[in-house]
Nucleic acid binder design. Sequence first.
DNA 1: CCTATGTATGAATACATGTTCATATAAAAT
DNA 2: ATTTTATATGAACATGTATTCATACATAGG
Lengths: 120, 120
Amino acid sequence: MKKIDCDTCEELCEHPQAICLAKTDLIPEDKAQRVADLFKILGDTTRVKIIQALSKRELCVCDIAAVIGMGQSATSHQLRTLRNTRLVKYRREGKMAWYSLDDEHIEGLLTQGIEHVEHD
Amino acid sequence: MKKIDCDTCEELCEHPQAICLAKTDLIPEDKAQRVADLFKILGDTTRVKIIQALSKRELCVCDIAAVIGMGQSATSHQLRTLRNTRLVKYRREGKMAWYSLDDEHIEGLLTQGIEHVEHD
DNA sequence: CCTATGTATGAATACATGTTCATATAAAAT
DNA sequence: ATTTTATATGAACATGTATTCATACATAGG
């Protein structure tokens, strides 16, 4: 370990140059957090199924529950999560709520993820 | 609620046709699980930083720890997770372990995620 | 050999999260 | 008005997971 002098890495470390460069290129904390939060939403089987189902057609809550094989409450809770992160939107029609994808990009992400697991 | 007769949806439900179609199109359980597992790996700030750093250059464990600002142990634990899911590989050189991305696709996924959060 | 260093790992802890249950809200139907 | 139906939500519970601490392992150097 040696002391080095560097704009972004002024500490004891093993490979100061590599660390300096890597620190310069490193994704900022807040952006890393938002990226992780986005992927966290997609990191749940139930939500993957909901998003995939909604990418094909608009569905109401009880239909989503029937399709993915979960209870109404669990489905509603997950839809709230997806609403809060602006991944789905809904319109009310009488007592029913019709859900659809809010963000067209999310379908691309999901598709890429699916392709990734298929490529093994 | 009415009883309907349908290949994939033979039960009581509200919009049997929509449910039948959606069930037919639905991603299979095991594939949804693998997709969610993949995204789950990306759904952590520390791992996002590690993957992003490794997408630029090969780094050893203590350098990664220094770059992302975490302890050696925590870093090593996360690297194990990334190894087990075949997202990173490593080569040993003396007592050091040099890590790099194992899967070139993963960088694309990360990039798309970053673009997504930038697009707000 | 013995020590120092880089890395890995098991156990413990703290924290987050998904589902269920019970219940609330709100609109439609009787 | 009362009941039924669709959805939302709070609380409780169980499970999963990220980090830390202590320690083990392995390699290099004296």
